[in-house]
Write a protein that binds this DNA or RNA. Sequence first.
DNA 1: AGCGTCAATAAACGCCTGTTCGAATGACGG
DNA 2: CCGTCATTCGAACAGGCGTTTATTGACGCT
Lengths: 220, 220
Amino acid sequence: MSLTDDPGAESQTPEAEAATKQLVFNAAERLFALHGFQNVSVRDITAEAGVNLASVNYHFGSKDSLLFEIFRRRTQELNRERARMLHEAADRNAGKPPVREILTALFAPPLRWLDPSNDRRISLQFLIRARSEGTAEIREVLGSDVSHLKRFADALLAARSDLPSEEVYWRLHFVLGMIHQNRFMELDRLHVLSEGLTREGEVDALLARMLDFAEAGFSR
Amino acid sequence: MSLTDDPGAESQTPEAEAATKQLVFNAAERLFALHGFQNVSVRDITAEAGVNLASVNYHFGSKDSLLFEIFRRRTQELNRERARMLHEAADRNAGKPPVREILTALFAPPLRWLDPSNDRRISLQFLIRARSEGTAEIREVLGSDVSHLKRFADALLAARSDLPSEEVYWRLHFVLGMIHQNRFMELDRLHVLSEGLTREGEVDALLARMLDFAEAGFSR
DNA sequence: AGCGTCAATAAACGCCTGTTCGAATGACGG
DNA sequence: CCGTCATTCGAACAGGCGTTTATTGACGCT
């Protein structure tokens, strides 16, 4: 429900919604992404935003609701980008895109967010954190909202209709693991391990590498 | 340091170390695995263990130290199993095992722990949780202790000496993502998505699937 | 002009947290 | 049988937490 999107907020006066709410939203996303949900207090957030302590509860109801609202918005944005790319891939290929293009629609959006020049980097970091340490409500959404993933599963099933469908599901599962592995801590460890050989500077190069690996796993 | 292992504890009287300490250790591991570190209070632990509230601080110093001690022990056990399998693979192959055997040494131990008939299942769930929501101390260890991974990286570099080494590092990175994806929440989502087609009942079948996928990604 | 609504503020509330303290307990060795 | 020491115990502490309340200010509308 409530698919109407309002980039700023959801006031009746559509313009210039309370600047305080935006300040809280941004400060919370930043701090949650950097330090985790449980390690950031409402006082930390309001101090960072430069607003009153009660603002969180006034504008969002509770700290939990604030987290969920940020999560909901960012997840929606990411899913939309992916769905759009999958749709375009279908248009280009008479409704039946090859595996590589499906995987590109899955990989490219979060990788673009990961780009240091992108101010969405902090949003991706937030999403990763929320996914693993989120509240029960978030975990519930993640577990049940398969509708988004189902589109990709169906596309892959069509592209590899020669395989048993369970095999396709498992491979999709592995591929999703590759994405979530691109966390900042894990990337750091990789850089240490390779003694600086690997760099994440060029997102396009990383995307190509991931696609090569995943496509090889699928083409067999 | 302190590589001397004592299965029970580290008392001067080597036998029958305080049963309370073991009770706390087990209860804490269970609760941390099920609900996360921050969501479990010292009171929860001592209640579950049926011991006095002060036991945690008396035997472990602090709640943080308790977490770290559990993490240290389980990590050591897992790494040892992996190192042993890698060593055996090297023995079988004149010191230069093929990719698939290296990956087997990496995959098999945690998958065996995952088996429902294995009472180590809870330990694996604990490790997964600690990895993602652990304290700064744990994250520090994970990021800096590359010595364990280095053995696998070196083996892979030898097996695929025809590839640029950075390529090998990236592929190892992807492969590690496949492992960490095998979290319980993610598995649940997979089962929902496939409408029950996928089952995790047989660990050996899952291992074979993972090896097929990962080996394909490496063989190119 | 005055009313009503929404936003922001300072202060406080009650609860839960990890940790500490001093006393009590109990087993063991001399 | 007594003294010792590690362990257990009940109780309390100080601090941080999310949330609530009452009050004030600002703004648009009739």
